[in-house]
């Protein structure tokens, strides 16, 4: 009944969603190992410190730096012969790879698990989070991606063994060209305690700077609606929602965002929701704890001046 957690690394840094995956795995199995696919075996040492992990299995090869789903899935499917569960944090990294593993192992994967109810039953959202379903797997092996907002993030404190696997990395039928990453000193969106999020109401990329200034004042991360990203106010990795990131901070401040179901899907579990909108009837206002029904430009400037 052992579980393998697929770890997402950025250099030597472990993604928060992978720590949530370790927690979910420990709810399923007393024997949790981690798998790291990396270009540099040294990156695995940080993973060995996650408490709850018994052994870190490492596959290191220069070709794994921007690994394709095809290659990653073949390696993982091989390693899975020793495991019953594969658990990964819900993220574009795992969503790209885990279903391919499912095809190779003839298993139906389960996406976006929010709760482990039993060894083979799980809760997961449907319809942009408007429905929560309990699903039961009858597959021999179970492949899961789990929501980072629904499980505690396993902390450091362990000292797992590290085992390097020698695997022949197969040829890839796709090649990496480039990665355009946003650089920011601000807290990371999915793990931040506070988020200031801007929508179409900001009107322009220049005006969106107000959201960034307020975020800096509140030591918050910046988020955005799809309309704001589509309009080019900010890049795609800031989008919150059904097709963007799922967040559950202590404070979510929605500025000039109407509150379409697809946006709510990404932030409705926030602890305190603040809405600044000149339309007091916007759906967003109905689900807020605090509403400031006003023109956002003056309001945000006042907040920047007073915070």
């Amino acid at each position: 009944m052992s579980a393998l957690v697929l770890i997402e690394l950025h250099g030597a840094e472990i993604s928060a969603n992978s720590r949530a995956a370790v927690t979910a795995a420990t709810q399923l199995s007393g024997a949790v190992d981690a798998l790291v696919l990396t270009n540099d075996a040294a990156n695995a040492s940080a993973v060995a410190a996650i408490s709850g992990v018994n052994t870190v299995k490492v596959v290191a090869d220069a070709a794994l730096e921007h690994v394709s789903a095809g290659i990653a899935s073949k390696i993982i499917a091989g390693v899975m012969s020793d495991y019953q569960y594969l658990v990964a944090g819900s993220a574009t990294y795992s969503k790209n790879i885990v279903p391919v593993v499912g095809a190779l192992l003839d298993v139906q994967p389960i996406s976006d698990v929010c709760e482990v109810k039993s060894p083979n039953t799980f809760a997961r959202p449907l319809y942009a989070g408007n429905i929560m379903a309990t699903v039961e797997s009858s597959d021999e092996k179970i492949l899961l991606t789990v929501r980072a907002t629904s499980f505690d993030h396993a902390e450091d404190g362990g000292s797992a063994a590290i085992e390097e696997l020698s695997v022949d990395v197969p040829e890839s039928n796709s090649t990496f060209i480039s990665l355009q990453e946003s650089q920011s000193e601000r807290p990371e969106l999915t793990t931040a305690d506070r988020i200031v999020s801007g929508g179409r109401g900001l009107g322009s990329k220049e005006n969106f700077g107000l959201i960034e200034q307020l975020a800096d004042k509140l030591d918050a991360a910046v988020g955005a609606s799809r309309a704001a990203v589509d309009a080019g106010f900010i890049s795609n990795d800031y989008q919150v929602g059904q097709t963007g990131k799922v967040v559950a901070p202590k404070l979510y401040m929605a500025v000039g965002i109407s509150g379409a179901i697809q946006h709510l899907a990404g932030m409705k579990d926030s602890q305190v929701i603040v809405v600044i909108n000149n339309d007091g009837d916007a759906p967003m206002a109905r689900m807020a704890d605090l509403v400031w029904n006003t023109d956002l430009f003056g309001a945000v400037q006042d907040l920047i001046d007073n915070a």
């Binding site: 408007n130 929560m132 379903a133 309990t134 797997s137 597959d139 179901i261 709510l264 409705k268 109905r286």
Partner: peptide
């Protein structure tokens, strides 16, 4: 392979907006 054994509505709840 995976059976839905139950569903509940889990949309947003109106909060007592102040």
């Amino acid at each position: 392979r995976v059976k839905v054994i139950g569903v509940v509505e889990s949309g947003t709840k109106d909060r007592a907006a102040k």
